[in-house]
């Protein structure tokens, strides 16, 4: 089967500062790929290139066979298939939780309000926040906010979910509730690319772990390979610091 995401010799530079160097990686449907690495390694930039929040300066990205670099590809259309969860949640503070979730389906998918609402309630139930439907984001804790953000992304019924350090802005006691939702999602067969510092999650949930440093993919493999038998010195050095 053809990979759902094909990244070929991707590079990204801000002026002279090259942050991604010839990244090539294929991701299969239903695969959970966890990207780890020190800060400044380019892992978030890599993730943000996958839905073109960052414009690559070279190489190619194809999602379901459609090149994102191709001028005829509708990037807004691709983005409806690729959900994203941010470190800072980025909930819409002027909208109630329910309206945060239904905005996309109603305005972009053109669903009738009733259908969008029942889908949103179903998702809120799934992330354990059905009682917060009419709350405003400001009244939520970090963990609750991030779970709503996940529900918001899922409401578009994406085929791929991108997670950009989803637990890094959370108080430690709230990390678990967010990871639990992500774990559930992985179990259901969602294709996921997760940038995280949660090594436990990478080990337990990841099908594949990619270690990045200084804009390169240094090493990739199953969690066992990366965590138990890393081949590269730099991988070993990084893991010895975080584990």
């Amino acid at each position: 089967m053809k990979p759902i995401i094909e990244v070929t010799e991707l590079s990204k530079a801000y002026g002279d500062n090259v942050v991604l160097k010839n990244i090539s990686v294929d991701i299969d449907s239903k695969e959970v790929v966890v990207v780890i690495g020190p800060s400044g390694s380019g892992k978030s930039t890599f993730l943000r290139c996958l839905n073109l929040l960052e414009e690559p300066t070279g190489g190619n990205i194809a999602i379901e066979g459609k090149s994102l670099m191709d001028k005829s590809t509708s990037i807004t259309k691709i983005r409806t298939e690729v959900g994203m969860v941010f470190q800072q949640f980025n909930l819409f503070p002027h909208l109630k939780v329910l309206d945060n979730i239904t905005l996309g389906p109603i305005q972009i998918r053109k669903w009738p309000a009733q259908k969008a609402k029942s889908k949103a309630m179903e998702l809120l139930d799934k992330v354990g926040l059905a009682d917060k439907a009419n709350a405003f984001p400001a009244s939520l804790s970090g963990g609750q906010s991030q779970r709503v953000a996940i529900a918001r992304a899922l409401a578009m019924e994406p085929k791929i979910m991108l997670f950009d350090e989803p637990t890094s802005a959370l108080d430690p006691e709230m990390v678990g509730e967010v990871l639990a939702v992500m774990k559930e999602l992985a179990k259901e067969g969602m294709t996921m690319v997760v940038v995280t510092h949660e090594m436990g999650f990478a080990r337990e949930v990841g099908d594949r772990v990619i270690f990045m440093e200084q804009g390169y993919i240094v090493e990739q493999g199953t969690p066992e390979q990366i965590f138990e038998r890393p081949q590269q010195e730099r991988t070993k050095a990084f893991l010895s610091k975080v584990l």
Partner: peptide
């Protein structure tokens, strides 16, 4: 308005105009 708001709107598949109308302007006008 924090640029994460525009990014979140775009990541849902909104055009720039939709993001302005539904996400940025309602907050900015206040």
């Amino acid at each position: 308005i924090d640029k994460g708001q525009m990014e979140a709107a775009k990541s849902l598949g909104m055009t720039h105009a939709q993001a302005m109308r539904f996400v940025i302007l309602p907050q900015a006008i206040r």
